[in-house]
Design a protein around this nucleic acid. Structure first.
Lengths: 199, 199
DNA sequence: CTTTTCTGCAAGTAAGTACTTGCACTCAAG
DNA sequence: CTTGAGTGCAAGTACTTACTTGCAGAAAAG
């Protein structure tokens, strides 16, 4: 007999359900504030299943972060860039905003309890670090070509900082009267006017 | 007899010792990761003293945040500004960096566990919100005067965002080869070139 | 001197939490 | 049909944590 408390589920699906629940709770309550009981409940599995899959809470969290922080999806995006700087930067800003937005809470969570995240914390930061490097390279190429002038590292830092601040600060510092496009356009314009090479 | 386990302490001093310890731990481990036992130990008081002073952990944390987030110290600073825009903005950037730095971890902690901070979370954000308003006003005045052009709200947002990103991201995104001055000077220059009115 | 206030100390309680274990059930593969 | 993997369920363990309580000492105020 097949009752509703025993639905058929593959092992894979169970794992992803657990990951989804863990991510949601980790982002909301942090590592210590999240209990295995809550994760199990939200995932719709028994608490014992968590431990049978991952051994302990730490391993679960680490696997969860690894699962959600792939580091390679930037390579599909970069080759598409080659128009003029302004549209490039706008596209980059949109791409980065999306990426960071989807990891926002997980990234934020690694900021506090810093000593307790161990390698899971590093995993969450791998994608942003790769993007940072790519942006720096982009800026350096444009400086080389004579489009921009200044230190590419500081340029990348400034550019990414504006996006970081938008994504992270959004909840506490709200600007409901502006759309994401408004803000990105403004930021890109100011940035470009500020670093474009004078002729 | 006066032994070292019973040193003389006024009630006021005990409170500030508790606040200092609580702040340190809250910043490092978050609200749930911080235990009353640890706070008492670090403060050098008995755990029971905590509860005799504040009743419960929540009230302690709230009192602690209130204690460390005064909202009025900006008024002493603003009147000193009246030179040219560049030096004004540099001074503002330094001031904001210092303020945010001293509250960095407390502010960060309020980002996650958001539902659990209640009014303490608002208290931690009162000072930044006031600074945001002051910067917006400053920008508006400069636009009015014809020095800058653009939307003062977005200008303030961008300007503060760069500082926010620096302070918050510092630990994970390190640039040991640049000093704070390097970064502030670069950011202020780019920003100013970007928003200065063209003649 | 007496009283009040603040504190330390030790013991304890009730609740929560990570994690375990033994058993039964379902389903798919051999 | 048998077997094994994956799961639910219920009970339990060892530990932590917020919070309490009763007692005693020390200092300050009256």
């Amino acid at each position: 007999m097949l009752n509703e408390t025993h639905p058929i589920r593959s092992s894979e699906e169970t794992r992803t359900r657990i990951f989804a629940a863990a991510r949601q709770l980790l982002a909301k309550k942090g590592r210590r504030g999240t209990t295995t009981r809550e994760i199990a409940e939200l995932a719709g599995v028994n608490e014992a299943t968590l431990f049978r899959h991952f051994g302990n809470k730490d391993a679960l969290i680490e696997a969860c972060v690894m699962y959600y922080c792939p580091a390679g999806d930037l390579r599909e995006f970069l080759p598409k860039l080659s128009g003029d700087i302004e549209s490039d930067l706008r596209a980059l800003a949109h791409f980065m905003t999306e990426r960071m937005e989807s990891l926002r809470d997980l990234i934020l969570a690694t900021f506090i309890e810093e000593d307790q995240w161990s390698s899971a914390g590093d995993a969450a930061w791998r994608a942003p670090a790769m993007i940072k490097q790519a942006v720096t390279d982009y800026m350096a190429a444009r400086v080389e070509r004579g489009d921009l002038e200044g230190d590419p590292v500081l340029m990348a830092r400034l550019f990414m900082g504006t996006i970081f601040a938008y994504v992270v600060g959004r909840k506490r510092m709200q600007y409901p009267e502006y759309t994401l496009d408004d803000i990105i356009n403004f930021n890109v314009n100011v940035f470009l006017n500020g670093v474009r090479k004078k002729k």
